[in-house]
Simulated scan of single mutants.
Amino acid sequence: MNKEIKTPVWMELSAVGVSITLSRPTEANGVQVDKLHLRAPTVRDVRAAGASAGGDDEQRELALFASLAEVGAKDLEGLTLKDYNRLQAGYFRLVQDDSV
């Protein structure tokens, strides 16, 4: 049985990354934005985020997402929880194995 995962309207997935439309504009790098783009992570990105987090899983994820979106961690901390959850969903959709 092939179970197709429906992509939400606020998510645009490509081979190089995922774009997330935010529920409301926010500031990123000093500019108001209504979308954030996460590029596809490398092993190096994941290792660097882990090394900088000192064992704190939340800090590791925040550092990784900030790196992939090329914004400051403080910018991500200013997101609504709804929009941060969208980033998480986009990231996990981006890294999931399509062959499953």
Rank of each mutant, 00 (worst) to 15 (best):
E70A: 12
E70R: 15
L22T: 08
V43Q: 13
S67Y: 14
L38H: 06
L64A: 01
S23H: 15
D45T: 12
P41A: 09
H37L: 10
D34T: 00
L68D: 08
E61C: 13
L62P: 08
L68Y: 11
P25F: 10
L68R: 14
L22D: 04
V18M: 00
T21G: 13
L62W: 00
L22G: 03
A48C: 05
D45L: 03
D45I: 01
R60E: 11
L68V: 11
V43I: 12
T42D: 07
A69N: 13
A40S: 14
P25S: 10
T26Q: 03
S67F: 12
A51P: 09
E70T: 13
A63W: 07
V43M: 08
I20R: 04
V71H: 05
A73L: 06
L38R: 02
V46W: 10
Q59A: 13
R39H: 09
S67V: 06
D34R: 11
L36K: 02
A48P: 07
L36M: 01
R60M: 14
S19Q: 04
I20M: 01
G55E: 06
A73R: 14
E58V: 11
E61G: 14
T42L: 00
V33W: 06
Q32L: 03
A66E: 01
L38I: 03
Q32P: 02
R60I: 08
D57V: 15
G55V: 14
G55S: 07
D56N: 05
F65A: 10
A48F: 03
S23W: 08
A53Q: 00
S52M: 07
S19E: 15
E58R: 08
V33L: 07
G55R: 06
D45F: 04
D56I: 04
G54A: 01
Q59T: 14
R24E: 03
L62Q: 08
D34H: 07
E61I: 14
